[in-house]
Design a protein around this nucleic acid. Structure first.
Lengths: 311, 311
DNA sequence: TGATATCAATAGATAATAGCTATCAAAAGG
DNA sequence: CCTTTTGATAGCTATTATCTATTGATATCA
């Protein structure tokens, strides 16, 4: 049995005429006759009672016609479903974002996709890098925005932008006197860090390499969110590093926290992290990933830098 | 698209493994891969996200899987329906019978089919030959039991039996003195006939050929049923011919009507009619027709005669 | 780290089949 | 009696589903 055979069958049943049915199916009459015969042989029943003058459905034929219509409707539903999903820039997409990026990027991301991909429905999961990669690999996420090279070879990445680090300290702090800082300006004793697992903790530490060994004193004050750390900074508990985009929006000034960029090195390499769109190498939505990354990099905020093309 | 493709698709979706799915479908893995790819191309969507380590349904794939199951269920329903109708000796059959046969044959017919074809459901239409032939040709009937050669070449017949004619007259009638009659014994003035359209009317007249022209006197007393005629006979209104089987059951004796057979001619040809099973030449139920006619002739009542084999 | 195992995809050849044109055979109608 | 209609048949071709053998890419294990 075959969907084509069923459509031939329906055509004959509805026209009561092999020739006209063949025309409707865009095949020759002998072809159609042969296929009907094949179907009858396969089912072991006679579907039509034929004579030169008339073609009449048998009792089984009538019964089967009803079911055949149902089956063909199902086939049409499959085509419809496929059609509805054939736009690569449409549908639902579940995006994981690390906590040091999520709050800053989600509003603009939603605005941008609403504008450029009106048929796309985004949902978000905010978690740390490792759990996000796990979810990505298991299929629980379609993509993630991360700030590290993906660990697994099954994952693919598209660079989005480089985001410099800034130092944040309370108003009146000695660092406020300089417009640009260097890593050594940070006093390891003062440095506040996110809890382990946050990639930004490791990145901040690698900027302040001199602080690694001496930071043990702060072991008991590791905050689980940027928000908490900045509150600690505002309260005068220390200084910290924050990603550039976290300086936006005026929240810092309100709480009396001051932020300063670092001086760029001669080669233009300041302290920064590379933010990437990550997804399974096997993802069927590569096209969407490319479109999405391009849309993001097309309209970057001034505080971050597009990735140089040759990379 | 194709029912086979859909079953391949379902197999892969359910095993998440091309090799095992291929095994389940009894085809090679490359075959299955190719067909899935073809299906994806045709639908314009990716159904599976494949890697060496895992095969995962996409969102469209999940949606389509549900519909595909529905479609396959429909295909199974078609096969089931065909299976249920594949026994040629089962199902419903609508049988037309002329009024001068119906009352005598229906009880034994029902008993016989109930015994020999328990899966067969008979229903009956009692009418005169012409309307029955029309219904037969239009498909409103599956078969008919008639006593005439079918008029249309589209109809086929199987002889069942030859049924002699008997004369019926009131108790004390002069004919009662003879044990066997000849046609000329019938007085045209007395002959009562069924109304026009009944084949038995014409057959009775052809037996009493001498009565044809002289029967005009009875023109106003044509009864529409054998029952009525016999009541007239019982009341002394005349004599009539009846088919042999109408003499069964004791009803005649109760009403004081006497029946006598005719003498057979030297060649064994008495006055009689041939009763046949008639159906469309194109009928898909030829097998049932043969079985049915054989079952009827296998167990004829003593008053009728099997049709000689050479005919 | 290198060897092995796993698994889907690809290549190339073959078998099955759906398709065509031309023709036939039966029946109906003028 | 001839013509028309219509489904079935015959013979051939194009398509395609299928096979085996192999590749290439990962993952696993020693």
């Amino acid at each position: 049995m075959n969907l084509r055979d069923l459509s031939y069958f329906c055509a004959v049943a509805e026209t009561s005429h092999f020739g006209r049915a063949a025309e409707r199916c865009h095949v020759s009459q002998p072809t159609l006759s042969a296929q009907i015969k094949k179907l009858e042989d396969e089912l072991g029943v006679t579907l039509f009672e034929r004579s030169n003058k008339s073609v009449r459905l048998t009792a089984v034929g009538q019964e089967i016609l009803l079911i055949a219509h149902r089956v063909q409707e199902g086939a049409a539903d499959i085509r419809r479903a496929a059609m509805a999903h054939s736009d690569p820039l449409a549908g639902k997409i579940k995006l994981g974002i690390i906590p040091t990026i999520a709050p800053m990027i989600i509003p603009s991301l939603l605005a941008m996709t609403g504008r450029k991909f009106p048929a796309l429905h985004l949902s978000f999961v905010e978690d740390m890098t490792d759990p996000l990669e796990d979810m990505l690999r298991s299929g629980a996420l379609d993509a993630a925005i991360l700030a590290t090279d993906p660990m697994h070879s099954t994952l693919e990445e598209i660079p989005l932008y480089d985001e410099p680090f800034w130092a944040a300290f309370p108003k009146g702090h000695r660092l406020a006197q300089k417009s640009h800082l260097v890593a050594m300006d940070i006093d390891p004793q003062e440095l506040l860090l996110l809890s382990e697992g946050h990639c930004f903790r490791d990145q901040a530490l690698s900027v302040c390499r001199h602080a690694v060994s001496q930071n043990a004193a702060q072991a008991d004050t590791r905050a689980t969110s940027m928000e908490t750390i900045l509150n600690l900074v505002a309260a005068g508990a220390g200084v910290t590093l924050i990603p550039a985009l976290a300086t936006q929006g005026g929240r810092l000034a309100e709480t009396g926290v001051i932020a300063r960029p670092f001086t760029k090195s001669p080669r233009g390499e300041g302290a920064s992290r590379r933010v990437r769109l990550v997804f399974r190498r096997t993802s069927p939505r590569l096209q969407l990933m490319l479109a999405l990354s391009e849309a993001i990099t097309d309209d970057l905020p001034p505080l971050v830098h597009a990735v140089p093309k040759e990379e």
